Amino acid sequence: MSKKVGIQGIKGSFHHLVVMDYYPNEVAVVEHMSFHELAEKLASNETNEAVMAIENSIAGSILPNYALIDEYNLSVIGEHYTPVNMNLMAVEGQEIKDIKKVFSHPMALLQCKEFFKKHPHIKLIEDADTAEAAKRISEEGKLKVAAVASPAAASMYGLEILAREIHTIKSNATRFLVLGTEMQKPNGEKLDKASLKFDLSSDRGSLVSVLNILRDSYLDMTKIQSLPIIDEPWKYSFFVDVTFERTQDFEKAIDVLKIMTEDLKILGIYKNKLS
Rank of each mutant, 00 (worst) to 15 (best):
127 D>Q: 12
86 M>F: 07
165 E>T: 13
14 F>E: 08
169 I>W: 04
244 F>Q: 02
261 T>A: 05
102 V>K: 04
182 E>L: 12
194 A>S: 15
217 S>C: 15
244 F>V: 08
274 L>G: 15
215 R>M: 14
240 V>G: 02
231 D>Q: 09
107 M>D: 08
117 K>E: 15
238 F>L: 06
153 A>V: 03
217 S>M: 02
162 L>S: 05
21 D>W: 01
70 D>F: 05
24 P>V: 13
80 H>W: 11
93 G>R: 03
149 A>D: 08
5 V>N: 02
263 D>K: 15
52 M>A: 05
132 E>Q: 14
26 E>V: 11
69 I>C: 03
216 D>R: 12
78 G>N: 03
195 S>H: 05
61 S>P: 13
247 T>A: 09
26 E>Q: 15
193 K>Q: 13
140 E>D: 12
103 F>L: 12
208 V>S: 15
250 F>T: 04
1 M>E: 09
112 C>E: 03
232 E>L: 14
238 F>C: 09
8 Q>E: 05
43 A>N: 11
78 G>T: 02
225 Q>N: 12
49 E>V: 07
185 K>C: 02
17 L>D: 12
265 K>R: 13
75 S>E: 08
104 S>D: 07
138 S>I: 00
61 S>C: 09
119 H>P: 05
186 P>D: 07
24 P>G: 10
38 L>A: 04
210 V>M: 08
228 P>N: 10
60 G>E: 06
229 I>K: 07
123 K>C: 07
202 S>K: 14
137 I>F: 00
49 E>C: 05
87 N>M: 06
215 R>F: 08
88 L>I: 08
44 S>T: 14
205 G>R: 08
42 L>I: 11
108 A>D: 02
204 R>P: 09
30 V>W: 04
81 Y>T: 11
214 L>N: 01
237 S>W: 00
45 N>K: 15
131 A>W: 00
88 L>C: 04
11 K>I: 11
116 F>S: 13
134 A>I: 01
153 A>F: 00
252 K>R: 14
179 L>C: 06
258 K>M: 10
95 E>R: 12
266 I>N: 04
108 A>W: 00
86 M>H: 13
226 S>A: 13
210 V>R: 00
72 Y>M: 07
185 K>N: 11
213 I>E: 10
167 H>V: 09
167 H>Y: 05
16 H>D: 15
134 A>T: 03
24 P>H: 10
99 I>K: 01
184 Q>L: 13
252 K>Y: 12
23 Y>I: 10
40 E>N: 14
217 S>R: 03
213 I>A: 05
112 C>F: 00
37 E>F: 04
214 L>A: 09
242 V>G: 01
21 D>G: 10
251 E>S: 13
147 A>R: 00
85 N>M: 06
258 K>W: 08
66 Y>L: 11
183 M>A: 15
